[in-house]
Design a protein around this nucleic acid. Structure first.
Lengths: 209, 209
DNA sequence: GTCTATAAGACGATAGAC
DNA sequence: GTCTATCGTCTTATAGAC
């Protein structure tokens, strides 16, 4: 908290995190091209030059935000490797993905926005990470289909369906709030979606009683 | 083709359409904030001042593009009002929605981008149109559930699932191409998705043999 | 490390000749 | 209707005092 020797570094890191958080909000609201360094500085309560001290350019700052986003995803989903019961693995995946979207709507939207525009800033490393994850999950599902543990279904389309449906609650939050005539999505709204989506996935896989 | 009297108007309309098409590509690639009037002019092969002659401001041009997008949606889906067999209506809706995404990926992405950023440019009129459509479809599905024509499921979550899954093929096209290791999604990729998604929806509704 | 002041250029929009 | 030249402003980034 107050070690004179490391104070500089520690405060620097805190300030860097503050800027990253402000940038996340700005990029979420305006996309890369519409984001303004001045507004990011204002959100953080800092002079603009201070932002440029920690991040040389807008591009470098955006890349840092994007790495955080993908890092958050990896941190949450790396452990989901079970060769357990399909019913349990699928239910748990849906539950975690909905929860991730609820807790990190901005990260979810920034990643989608990056895809939407053709991923012009996504590094090959991050892209490969995401691809390997998808391919590994798809091969697990394919094995379940082959061994008749679940009903026949295209593994990629099943993954895309779960992915897209959960992202939707963050990416089209405005539309959903508008249809529901609510000013804010509640914890219950997400719990309901989690339950519905689990039911849908289990029925698709022929795993419902 | 060459009637002196109407040539002016006709050419004006054609040029307006050309600018709208160029703007659609620009807004798709860069979002509103990142789009540049100069690039839109370049895409159309016109001087920038000529673009400003037909559309007073960037905002006015974007609104025109957005109206085209929603208009295209209304034009495609207004006829889907059948009180016919659930299996047929649901299959046909999935088929049409996938086809819409395949034929209009840019319109699909621009609409999603508008939602993503909280719909700051969407008029109340267009928003109401979309909401009414969703609510009407949901009430039809709710009636099918009540009369036990389909298995019990939350109508809104089912609609969101279909909507999100189909949008995904345009909005995350980069990610999907990357996973499939393809440089372009083919007609067959969309046909496969259409078949898979139809199967999924019918299983969810308990309508598969 | 922090912050004011400003450079250098890009941007949306328009005036005005044709 | 078209297009060149340009205005005023906004934007990223940095120089340089503290």
């Amino acid at each position: 908290m107050s070690e004179p020797q490391r104070k500089t570094t520690s405060v620097g890191l805190e300030k860097k995190q503050l800027i990253l958080k402000s940038a996340e909000n700005e990029f979420d609201q305006y996309s890369y091209g519409g984001a303004r360094m001045q507004r990011i500085a204002d959100r953080a309560g800092l002079p603009k030059a201070n932002v440029h001290y920690y991040f040389r350019s807008k591009s470098e700052l955006y890349n840092a935000v994007l790495e955080d986003v993908v890092g958050l995803w990896n941190q949450t989903f790396k452990t989901l490797d079970a060769n357990h019961d399909p019913r349990m693995v699928l239910s748990e995946f849906v539950r975690m993905k909905v929860e991730f979207t609820r807790l990190h709507p901005r990260a979810t939207r920034i990643f989608t926005s990056e895809m939407l525009h053709g991923a012009p800033h996504l590094s090959e490393k991050l892209n490969d990470q995401m691809n390997r994850w998808t391919q590994n999950r798809a091969s697990v599902i394919a094995q379940w289909v082959e061994s008749k543990k679940i009903a026949p279904i295209d593994p990629y389309h099943l993954i895309f369906m779960i992915w897209a449906s959960t992202q939707h609650f963050a990416c089209s939050e405005f539309q959903i709030r508008s249809v529901y005539q609510k000013s804010k999505l509640t914890r219950k709204d997400f719990a309901d979606q989690s339950a519905s989506l689990t039911t849908m996935v289990l029925r698709i896989c022929g795993l419902e009683p």
